[in-house]
Nucleic acid binder design. Sequence first.
DNA 1: TTAACTGCTTGACAATTGTCAAGACATTTC
DNA 2: GAAATGTCTTGACAATTGTCAAGCAGTTAA
Lengths: 192, 192
Amino acid sequence: MIDKLIARLNGLHPMSEALTERIRSMVWITDHPKKTILLKEGEVNNHICMVASGLVRSYYINEGKEITSRFMDEGFIITSWISFYTRKPGNEFIETLEDTTLTCVHYNDIQKLYEEFPEFNIIGRKQVEYSFYMAELRTRMLRKNTAEEKYKFFLENHPNLLQRVSLKHVATYLGMNEETLSRVRSQYHKTH
Amino acid sequence: MIDKLIARLNGLHPMSEALTERIRSMVWITDHPKKTILLKEGEVNNHICMVASGLVRSYYINEGKEITSRFMDEGFIITSWISFYTRKPGNEFIETLEDTTLTCVHYNDIQKLYEEFPEFNIIGRKQVEYSFYMAELRTRMLRKNTAEEKYKFFLENHPNLLQRVSLKHVATYLGMNEETLSRVRSQYHKTH
DNA sequence: TTAACTGCTTGACAATTGTCAAGACATTTC
DNA sequence: GAAATGTCTTGACAATTGTCAAGCAGTTAA
């Protein structure tokens, strides 16, 4: 499991043996059954975890309703970025949608890595660049005008996710309600 | 003008004299009158520029209409991130809304800095982290349900911008049309 | 097995937002 | 200065989306 994480980091920038070993000593693995809350609103997100296997979603409450902000499957980093970055309690929840295995590193350990291995900043930079890039793509979806365009965008960008996620969550992710998504789908799949 | 940029980078992480001098040798300053197109759809964004003074917006075309994606005033980085990151032609335009002075560094020079000064990766990482954080806040706005909530969010987060930007652009930024924004404003300011 | 619950769909209707058109006013251009 | 252009507003109406309610199939729990 740790090897997956190491491989991913090496893919961003080749790491020295010393750095690799240091990371190995810091990483821990955790298993969580489906429907486990990993982070609650009001908590500070103190570690960065990668999904080794499984599926996770993050969401927050707006006007009393859950708004799904992101789905994270294998290889993706699950972190409530605003909280992790600001070091303050965030308002995001993170929960598992399937049985999930995570590989995690503590915030303090990440900072140590940045200090002890300057080249780890290259990896940190590239990872944040990638996360930012993905976030920009998601934002593009939210700027689509119609429910159908949003659904189409989702189909194109997450073709595999539809089988694993309930439509209720997809709907709030796309910024519409469950019923609208249902209608858009039936309309869309008639003509495509 | 360059001092502003240097000060900003020092604020992210103190830089050595050598790094500072290297950066000074790479930066150039450009002035652009109001309504200048700085980047066109289909071009690769090959440099990172900071607004030293003035105001800029980025936008793209969706279904034939301009969608404003961001406003950037003093101290902010103007870069079409998706294009800069992927090194491919993007679909964003960038234009000045006021007479603007920019301090710019070329993509290749940035990469040289990353290689020659490993500690520059700390600055790069922190800058991207900050940009990402700001982008996440903007995304939160897009997930607001009603036009009024979006307008309120804009008022709270960019209180000074409303005097400098035409409402047409604010409207597309908020994901609504001009008329709706106008109505929301008249409604909102009656009761607040 | 029955009961409760979840996920998804559909219908009727309400609320919100978009579209098209027009006009007032300010600003720019020639 | 006159004309053209741009900004903002308002009205009437259309389209889209949300809300509330109900129902059905499949799953879970007792």
